[in-house]
Amino acid sequence: MVAPRASPTAENPAAEVQVSAGASLVSQPSAPDPLSEIEADSSGSNSDTESVRSIVDSAFSASGENSGDDTSSVKSHIFKYQYENGRRYHAYREGQYLQPNDEKEQERLDMVHHWYRLTLRGALFRAPILKYPQKVLDIGTGTGKLSSLLRLIDKPLLMVTGIWAIEFGDEFPSADVIGTDLSAIQPAWVPPNVQFIIDDAELEWTYAPNSFDFIHARTLGGSIKDFPKLLRQAYRTLKPGGWIEFDEFESWLKSDDGTLKDDSAISEWQTLMDQASTKFGRRLNIAETIEPMLKAAGFVDVVDDIYKNPMNPWPRDRRLKELGAWGNLAMVEGIEAISLALFTRVLEWDRAAVEVILARVRKELSNREIHSYAAT
């Protein structure tokens, strides 16, 4: 979602800035990808996780390891953790975020980052920011280390998984980039114009008014209790002409041809996830609500770009097939992480029951006869 904040006018003397509020992920205007117009790949039988991984395997070549030149140390080191159901969770502001921060989850976040870059055709963002931004904030910044996906795709593939803040800092050396997160999972060495702060974006911001050129946030669904408050603080801290961008996906899979049935395991699972996250007070499925909240906070010219990303390689289109392969891998590997705490803590299921429904969902996610997609 992308949109600007209004500049001072005679009609609006209180407004200080024209900012644009980022849009959820969208198709390029020149090359939209409506899945309803894409043919399904009917060659072969239903895919399973291994066949999806083989598609990912063939899509990428090995890359070299980052030398780490021109770096500086991360200043915050908070390495206390909580453990539950075999997964590791953050300790700072314990219980505010229900997804783990262990190595398996970090690998999933890295895959999601790559999936987003594929969706945006290699771009890091959509907002028309200044050529030489000076100060940038990345909310919920995630990981930023050299990651090996060897365990996942059976190939010695190393990739610099791109924490968004590090890649932005490399691309825009003029910018001082701040990445905030509840978990200290960032690398010890970063570009000199990037710093990480262990912070809760839901607390009162201490940044000066009109100080950021660009604020970026991705997949905050399920982690923010009071989005209007967060947007008000973002509005206050953006400079005149600055932009804010939200990249969110709908946590509700769909199909345009009826192949995703109402009585499917996927439908049952996502209904329970929506109920649990709503009860928890931090709803996952918030993508459709971002636009009106941005407007209510004072942002103008809000642009909501929407992509339809397949959940396995069912389309015939080569690019969509690759997106589906990565989307499927991220979901199949990460469904436990996004589900476990919501089901056990909020819905009070035992872990065995959770594993049963997740096994059914994984099977359907990899079924090429189910033409499901996520709107991002």
Rank of each mutant, 00 (worst) to 15 (best):
L158R: 15
Y235P: 07
T49Y: 00
T237F: 03
W252Q: 15
Q233E: 02
D226S: 13
S67D: 14
D262T: 13
A296W: 03
M293F: 00
H77L: 12
V19Q: 07
L230E: 01
G44F: 06
I338P: 03
S54H: 09
D304N: 04
A297G: 00
Q233H: 00
M331V: 02
S211W: 01
A59T: 04
N12T: 12
E202M: 12
R126M: 15
Q195F: 09
H114K: 00
V302C: 12
L157M: 15
E248G: 03
K104Y: 10
Q233N: 10
F299N: 02
L323D: 07
P128F: 11
S47F: 12
S267A: 15
D274K: 09
I185T: 08
Y373K: 08
E322R: 08
A40M: 05
L203T: 05
M331H: 09
K295P: 00
Q18A: 11
I286T: 15
H90F: 01
T141L: 11
L118R: 12
K239E: 03
A165L: 00
I370M: 03
T119K: 05
S42Y: 04
K229H: 10
P192Q: 14
T278H: 10
V190M: 09
G86K: 11
G258K: 07
I357F: 07
Q186T: 13
A276T: 04
S267G: 05
G162S: 14
E245G: 03
K229Y: 08
L260W: 03
S24I: 15
F79Q: 09
Q275S: 08
R368L: 01
E288I: 03
F196L: 12
K225F: 00
P240F: 07
F212D: 01
Y92Q: 06
L231H: 06
S339R: 01
G221S: 06
A40N: 01
R218C: 05
D48K: 04
T180H: 06
P100G: 01
V194M: 08
Y97K: 02
A59Y: 01
W205V: 05
D200V: 10
K229A: 15
V354P: 04
A31H: 12
K229D: 11
S36E: 12
T271R: 12
P4H: 07
D33G: 12
N66Y: 09
I286N: 08
V136F: 03
V190P: 02
S183W: 05
L120F: 13
L358T: 03
V17N: 10
N285H: 12
I55H: 03
P192L: 13
S183Y: 00
R232Q: 15
L150Y: 15
L329W: 09
A184F: 01
K155A: 06
A217D: 02
T344N: 01
T161Y: 09
Y235K: 02
R151H: 11
V190Q: 12
G122C: 04
W252A: 14
K135S: 13
I185P: 13
F79V: 14
W326A: 08
S223P: 03
V112G: 04
L25A: 13
I153G: 00
E105D: 07
L231Y: 15
T206P: 01
D110P: 13
P209D: 00
D70N: 13
G241M: 05
M1W: 09
F79A: 12
